[in-house]
């Protein structure tokens, strides 16, 4: 579903991501683990089309992110770390706007919004202005806007950052619930969250990919991380 071949990203003299080769299967949940500044967010931004690789090739569902950027972006839903939303809109407006922007047919928007709102339990706040949402609702609406067009790939940047324990468990269950239906790529620097949520983990350090391991074969992620980093 997602293929990266020798992907490198430079910002001037700074090498943010270095020669990463990785593939993610359909329906898989992959975690990007690494300390701050390891290149996780840059890698996610390239996956979403927000940034383009300096060199290498990145494809989403077979579409090249540089040569066919619109087709690649159409298949991705993205939840940035800060959960940015349009505060002046109501939740329904926000979700409808994102659905229309991501190419959902006009006649299908209402149904798509209702469906995603129900699946994320935000249907009771559809008429609430976004600026009045609690942190937990805000996060769920941020995920809803990323899923409203039924993407093949969902990208989440530090999805549990700043959430309380109950919200963390809900988010984890939500991501696990998407496994099999949608490819999920999430970043985190919290070892326990990665261990409990993903099928495979990719460990990054200083922009480079150190290893990719299946969680089933990694009983002690902490020991693995310490041995590599």
């Amino acid at each position: 579903m997602v293929e990266l071949r020798n992907v490198t990203k430079r910002y001037g003299a700074h090498l943010a991501v270095r020669d990463v080769t990785l593939s993610v299967a359909e329906g898989e949940v992959l975690g990007l683990l690494g300390p701050n500044g390891s290149g996780k967010t840059t890698l996610l931004r390239m996956l979403t089309g927000a940034h383009t690789p300096t060199s290498g090739q990145l494809t989403v569902a077979g579409f090249d992110s540089v040569r066919q950027p619109l087709e690649a972006r159409r298949r991705v839903g993205y939840v940035p770390e800060s959960h940015p939303l349009y505060d002046h809109m109501r939740v329904r407006e926000m979700l409808s706007f994102m659905a229309a922007l991501r190419g959902v047919e006009r006649g299908a928007i209402r149904g798509a919004v209702g469906e995603v709102a129900e699946s994320l339990s935000v249907d009771d706040v559809l008429e609430t202005p976004v600026r009045h949402l609690s942190r937990g609702y805000r996060q769920r609406v941020a995920i809803a806007q990323a899923l409203v067009h039924r993407p093949s790939v969902l990208v989440l940047d530090e999805p549990t950052n700043g959430l309380d324990p109950r919200q963390i468990i809900e988010t984890r269950n939500l991501i696990r619930g998407l496994a099999g239906r949608c490819t999920v790529i999430m970043s985190s620097h919290i070892l326990s969250e990665i261990a409990r949520t993903v099928d495979r983990v990719a460990i990054l350090l200083r922009g480079g990919l150190l290893t990719v391991r299946s969680m089933a074969e990694t009983p002690d992620l902490e020991a693995l991380f310490l041995s590599l980093a």
Binding site: R45, T48, G49, A50, L70, E71, R73, R74, V76, Y78, P80, S82, P84, L85, Y86, D87, M98, L101, R102, G103, Q145
Partner: peptide, 14 residues
């Protein structure tokens, strides 16, 4: 500043 530009630039629009 609000971070919403990222939503626009990752949508399939030119």
């Amino acid at each position: 500043k609000a971070g919403t530009l990222e939503l626009l630039l990752t949508a399939p629009v030119r």
